[in-house]
């Protein structure tokens, strides 16, 4: 009876959140699927039910395939490099040196900045004519690079800024993981004569496995949905080299108002990300301690 009462109060407190969650998350998810089954131009008075035709059209659409590949390329660059960098930062900040708090704040600040601000700042940094990066390249006697308007460099440039932007977030998670590692284990290893490298490899990493898995899974999910950077910096160009799936979905759904088709593209991305997440849980040797 007591437990029931407690649950009842808990439920009462949860109602405001759940009502918002239901209206703004669950309902749009269900409604989005409903839209994806229709040929739905926003102005057409009567959307027509077409079953899975939008899904079939998307699978035949070479731009959707290109967008999937570009997104994959982005994820492959951002997830390993970004996580390695975050881990490196976390380990160095965990040494207990003085003044590390300032560094923590500095590394975390970009995470708090909105994507539009980050993108605009980087557009100036990477500008071919007025950018500071090219300025230094020229100072060193090198040729300037069209960072964002060359098909080869555009996506790596966006990956670079995304890594810079997000490194601080995972760094905090890794730091929390590192703090949870019992000091005795590291000390015992040290007494047994393990070098710092051995201690890191054989004690820290195995104990960090759940944290690493969490960060990897979350990074894959987040970076599969890259949108703001490409939308602001390149709009998917030059020649589709930075066209990502969410950007393509946006262009179809909110640029051209082909809502049914856009929704289908979104659901296909969801399916792909779901498969990859499950695969990560299955294949990565991080699950068991």
């Amino acid at each position: 009876m007591k437990a029931w009462n407690r649950n009842k109060y808990a439920a009462g407190f949860l109602i405001p959140y759940f009502s918002l969650f239901a209206v703004f998350v669950v309902a749009p998810i269900v409604y989005g699927f409903f839209i994806s089954l229709h040929k739905w131009y926003i102005l057409s008075p009567h959307p027509t039910f077409v079953g899975f035709a939008n899904y079939r059209a998307a699978l035949k659409d070479d731009l959707f395939r290109i967008a999937l590949l570009r997104t994959g390329y982005f994820v492959l660059m951002v997830v390993p490099i970004g996580n390695a960098l975050s881990l490196l930062l976390a380990v160095s900040l965990n040494q207990g040196y003085r003044g590390t708090t300032i560094y923590k704040v500095c590394y975390y600040l970009p995470v708090l900045t909105s994507v539009s601000v980050v993108a605009i700042v980087w557009r100036w940094l990477l500008s071919s004519e007025f950018g500071i990066v090219n300025y230094y390249l020229r100072l060193l006697g090198l040729r300037s690079i069209n960072w964002l308007s060359d098909t080869k460099t555009a996506m790596p440039s966006i990956a670079l800024l995304s890594i810079w932007w997000g490194a601080g977030g995972n760094m905090l998670v890794y730091l929390a993981g590192l703090k949870n590692i019992p000091r005795e284990l590291l000390e015992a290893a040290e007494i047994d004569g393990a070098s710092p490298g051995q201690r890191f490899r054989s004690v820290t990493i195995p104990l960090l496995r759940p944290t690493i898995l969490f960060c990897l899974v979350m990074s894959v999910i987040a970076s599969s949905q890259v949108f703001g950077q490409t939308y602001i910096l390149t709009g998917g160009g030059p020649y589709y080299s930075t066209l990502t799936v969410i950007l393509y979905m946006y262009q179809q759904g909110f640029g051209l108002y082909q809502l049914g088709y856009g929704a289908a593209v979104g659901y296909l991305l969801f399916a792909v990300v779901l498969v990859f997440t499950l695969l990560q849980f299955k294949l990565l040797p991080f699950r068991r301690l």
Binding site: G12, I15, P16, S19, L20
Partner: peptide, 14 residues
């Protein structure tokens, strides 16, 4: 009293 708060929050959120 505890119950009143969520009950108050419900109409507000709606």
């Amino acid at each position: 009293r505890v119950l009143k708060l969520p009950l108050l929050l419900l109409p507000l959120s709606l």
